[in-house]
Simulated scan of single mutants.
Amino acid sequence: MAYDLGKLGFLVVEDNVPMRHLVRQMLQAFGVKRIADASEGHGAFRVLESADFDIALVDYLMAPMDGVTFTRLLRTERTSPNPYLPVIMMTGYTERERVIEARDAGVTELISKPLSARGLYHHITAVIEYPRPYVRAPGFFGPDRRRRQMSFAGPERRRGTPIKGARYPGRPDYLDV
């Protein structure tokens, strides 16, 4: 299904200027008209304090505030401008530990670099088509990390069977750990 993304606002948080311009051009090709950017997490917070956005595209590795720290603070800081903002993290670091770190910080989706327009569009539509409820638990606030439904006998849920009827076409189930 094709979406009219023209009414959505995107915040691009990327320290690499050519990559930031590339992401901006992809979004414009998708019909997005309202795009703001920042070169790292502190600047992104200033942008978020002055305007509302629908989705943030955030790089993993930036200085002085990286994407994981930005996402964690966005989700948990008392003065956060929008703790419910969907965050799509862009990264060239897809090792399991880093993916888990991003997930545990409250990232909504994760896309690996190098980016393709098709892949970026796919992750944007995943945020739209498969919204996840937000969970508040000790040490975590963010989109529900579980993509599986399961029975369990204890106070915590971990691995299980797929959610009946859920569709994640063409995506690795990288958040199921």
Rank of each mutant, 00 (worst) to 15 (best):
L73T: 09
R158A: 02
M90Y: 00
H123N: 13
F140I: 05
I100M: 14
E101G: 02
M65K: 07
P114H: 10
G165E: 11
S151F: 09
E95I: 10
G67C: 09
D15M: 04
R159H: 01
P83C: 07
P86M: 06
R46H: 07
Y3G: 01
D173N: 09
Y121M: 10
G31C: 09
V58I: 11
K33P: 00
E156F: 09
Y130E: 14
S112H: 13
R136S: 13
P138G: 03
M65W: 06
R158H: 05
R96G: 02
Y174L: 12
G139F: 09
F45G: 12
V68T: 06
R34V: 05
G31Y: 06
P64M: 08
E129S: 11
L27D: 03
G31W: 06
R72V: 04
I100L: 15
L27A: 02
E77N: 05
A137Q: 07
A44I: 06
E77G: 00
Y93H: 15
P138K: 11
L85M: 04
P18D: 14
E101L: 08
I128H: 02
A117C: 01
V68S: 02
R146H: 15
L27V: 01
V127H: 04
G106T: 04
D37H: 14
R136K: 12
R167E: 12
G92A: 15
R96N: 08
D52M: 10
L11P: 06
M1E: 01
I124L: 01
D173A: 09
S39Q: 11
L57W: 01
D15E: 12
A36D: 09
A38R: 08
N82L: 00
R78E: 15
R96F: 12
Y121L: 15
P81C: 01
V32M: 06
F53Q: 02
R159Y: 00
T108I: 10
I111Y: 02
R98P: 00
D66G: 13
R171L: 12
L27N: 01
T125W: 01
L115T: 10
D54H: 13
